[in-house]
Simulated scan of single mutants.
Amino acid sequence: MQEHSFAFRLKEQLELNHLTLQTVASALGISRTAVHKWTKGGEIDYDNLRKLADFLGVNWIWLRYGEQALSSVRHAGPVTQPMTDLRRRYTAEIMESEARMRLAQQGARIVTWEWNLISDEVAYSANVEEVYGWPIRSNQDFWQHLPPDDVAAMMAMYEQAISTGENCEYDFRIPQLDGSLRWISSRATVVSDALGRKIKMVGISMDNTARNLAEEALRHSEARFRAMFEQSWGALGYLDLDGRWQRVNQSLCELLGYAADELYTTTWQALTHPEDLAPNLALFEQLKRGELSRYVMEKRLRHQQGHYLWLRVRTSLQRDLPDASAAHLISVFEDIDAQRSELARLQARINELEAADNATASGRD
């Protein structure tokens, strides 16, 4: 229920004159339910309106349409009403609501603003200097503090919004006296009058400097990581817990003979030699259960040309923050195929020599 409404003024009169709904209903010759509906915002016809105003001793125009309407008709001052308990409660609710709004604005560093498109006047909430870093009292104050690129982009956006009536949003920068930069995220909508004319733009602006700095630091960190990952001489791979390759570097692609896109369509299980798969899966399950922090094993992986390569694979489990339940594998692959081949050749030679020695010894016997 709004303060400037028929229902509000009627309830005030009932409270002021200590009248019950039934008393009014009896005086007007109508049902109590009808009076109750009026106090809840229901419509009232002209005859009952005049009767009700006469019974309450007030002007019927004021009762139905308020002080401004009566003033317009009479060219007289507004009707003065004493402060009732209802009005006090209503005023207290407004003050409490406004206090909560101010607290929320200060805590979230949110500025509210209204731009009169006819007079070009702009009004900001009281915390604008705290958030923007500058006192802003007019559009001229605002535009002069923005970089030219942001001014051009925002003016074009506002012109488009005013032309179409669409909402708009933009993140702009405000340089500070100390050389730092504040990032402000602004959202606005155009308001039209009853004739459809665009008369004002209202919006909110929020200080997003901390978020932008964090995102920029993250982008730089990711860029450094990508550079280190791609330029590493070692063959590296990130895999999800299902075994699918999430990211591979060029060294791993060259080692296995696959393009990165080819690896992304398969799993490490599918490339592992059947004889090496069971022991590998056993170590993998221990890793997932937290029984191992990492493991190292020598196994064979299928090359793109079909043959198998012997590799030494070091694998660890990396949990993602803040969701520690999400995780991925980091594996480093070392080519030991030549070593294994040489070891196999040497072992075969040892076996050959031992067999010959055993044969010689048997001949002497």
Rank of each mutant, 00 (worst) to 15 (best):
G196K: 07
E129W: 01
D193K: 04
E129C: 05
Q176W: 15
L213I: 14
D120A: 07
S119M: 04
A153L: 05
M201P: 03
D150R: 10
E166V: 07
D193F: 03
S119T: 15
I184G: 06
I110P: 05
G179L: 11
F142K: 01
I204H: 02
I110D: 09
I136A: 00
I199V: 15
E216H: 12
L213S: 02
S125R: 12
V128G: 08
E130A: 13
G133K: 09
C168Y: 08
Q144W: 00
E169Q: 15
L218W: 04
I118A: 09
A156W: 10
P148L: 13
L181Y: 04
L181M: 15
E169S: 14
F142I: 00
E159F: 02
R226P: 03
Y158K: 08
Y158D: 10
M201T: 04
A123D: 12
S125E: 13
Y132N: 04
N208V: 15
E130K: 11
I118W: 03
Q144R: 15
L195I: 05
E169C: 07
I118R: 13
R197F: 04
W143P: 04
N212L: 07
E121S: 11
V191W: 02
E215H: 01
D149S: 10
A217G: 02
V111N: 07
R137W: 04
L117C: 06
L146W: 09
I204L: 06
R187G: 09
V128D: 06
K198I: 00
A194Y: 00
Y124K: 05
A223W: 08
I174M: 13
F225P: 03
R137H: 14
F172H: 14
V131C: 08
P147K: 11
R182S: 10
V190P: 07
T189F: 04
I199A: 00
D171N: 11
E222H: 13
S185K: 09
L177N: 14
S163H: 12
A188Q: 14
S192I: 09
A188K: 02
E121F: 01
S125A: 05
K198R: 15
P135S: 11
N208M: 07
L195G: 08
D149R: 07
C168V: 10
R197A: 12
N208H: 08
V151R: 13
L177V: 06
A123F: 14
E114Y: 01
E159A: 05
L146M: 12
Q144V: 11
A214P: 03
N116Q: 09
D207T: 08
G179Y: 14
E159D: 14
